[in-house]
């Protein structure tokens, strides 16, 4: 016999995921605007790989296909991976990354709801560790005067890794603004000198800063729609801002200003779309603040001192590990137990 309650609100998992996907649209649109449509190809590849792997794993684990394929969670993982790798990467890069994310990081840990690590970030981490070379060829923004590839040429490159005659890969691509900053700082330039380089815009990397702003816009929609908790992005961005602000004040020549940190790399997409993955983040309000702060701190440390250009992915994975601990520590007091000590 069914137990009460007999009515439910109709916001189901798939609708939540769908709204998250909608919220990614402004960022993706700006991406296309600044960097060309290659990213759409990456997304299509990653999504196909995600759904195929999900279906395969569900079959292997003897689970029903329909409810899980239609909850959009695998789709979202695919999109996030595509967004975190260079759009002009060879076709197998998003496919391998996504397949790994879904098969290993998600299903080997028990599938939806049981995975301790954010699958998209695991996929990214595996790619950047295994294929560092392919992962650094980012497209330059289209309006920087480089000879841009047509969509056909991009497709050709993605699937065959050959460029039209007479074109150099290095002329089309660049390393990310964060990467460049790190390399140039090592070479002895100051932050302000570096930021005069043509790849930089007003706040951070030219183009990429706008994409970040697009993601922030989507994130704010998610906050208002109460799809994601406010504690996570606030704690993360706040910590990142505060730390980079302090260091920038002390030594402006060697530390980039806070807004630069906010609008470069995966900070925005991380704050609103990756850290906020409910499955791999804490469930208590206090825990979320701790989690966000920890991720902010790690991101800053990795960016400032680490070997990788961006730290969001590794910060996320490291903090994912602490989630059970954070949850256990921050259990709130229940009604009627406020005054007492536990």
């Amino acid at each position: 016999m069914l137990s009460s309650p007999f009515i439910t609100r109709t916001l189901s998992v798939d609708r939540i995921m769908l709204r998250v996907l909608y919220a990614l649209l402004p960022g993706i649109a700006l991406y296309v605007w600044y960097f060309g449509p290659a990213i759409l190809v990456s997304i299509a590849l990653a999504v196909t790989a995600a759904l195929a792997t999900e279906a395969l794993m569900l079959k292997l684990r003897d689970r029903p296909l329909r409810p899980f394929l239609s909850d959009y969670s695998a789709l979202l993982t695919g999109v996030l991976i595509a967004l975190s790798i260079p759009p002009l990467a060879p076709w197998w890069l998003p496919v391998v990354g996504t397949a790994f994310a879904i098969a290993v990081a998600k299903h080997l840990y028990g599938g939806l709801g049981s995975n301790p690590f954010n699958p998209a970030m695991i996929g990214y981490a595996v790619l950047i560790i295994s294929f560092p070379h392919e992962m650094t060829h980012w497209l330059s923004p289209q309006d920087m005067g480089h000879s841009a590839l047509s969509l056909g040429q991009q497709l050709h490159y993605i699937f065959t890794s050959t460029l039209p005659a007479g074109m150099q890969l290095d002329a089309l691509t660049m390393s990310t603004p964060l990467d460049t900053l790190k390399t140039q700082l090592h070479l002895g330039m100051t932050v302000s000198d570096i930021r005069d380089l043509p790849i930089y815009g007003r706040l951070a990397g030219k183009g990429s800063e706008m994409v970040a702003a697009g993601f922030a816009l989507g994130g704010i929609y998610l906050l208002i729609a109460r799809i994601i908790p406010w504690q996570l992005p606030l704690a993360f961005l706040g910590t990142l801002f505060a730390l980079s602000g302090v260091f920038n004040l002390i030594d402006p020549a060697h530390y980039a200003p806070p807004l630069f940190h906010w609008f470069s790399g995966a900070a925005m997409i991380g704050a609103f779309f990756i850290l906020t993955d409910p499955i791999t983040s804490p469930t208590t309000a206090k825990g979320r603040i701790l989690f966000g702060m920890g991720a902010g701190l790690l991101t800053f440390l990795i960016r400032a001192y680490g070997g990788f250009p961006d730290g969001v992915a590794f910060a996320t994975i490291l903090m994912n590990m602490c989630v059970p601990l954070i949850d256990a520590w921050t259990q709130p007091k229940v009604f009627g137990k406020k005054g007492s000590k536990r």
Partner: peptide
């Protein structure tokens, strides 16, 4: 009037339950 609930899916730890719980429990746990 009361449609039978769709099949239960795994908990995604979204804590909507915890936000709704009047006793401030952690229903997902």
């Amino acid at each position: 009037l009361f449609p039978p609930p769709p099949p239960a899916m795994p908990c995604i730890r979204c804590t909507r339950c915890a936000q709704a719980c009047p006793v401030e429990l952690q229903p997902q746990e």
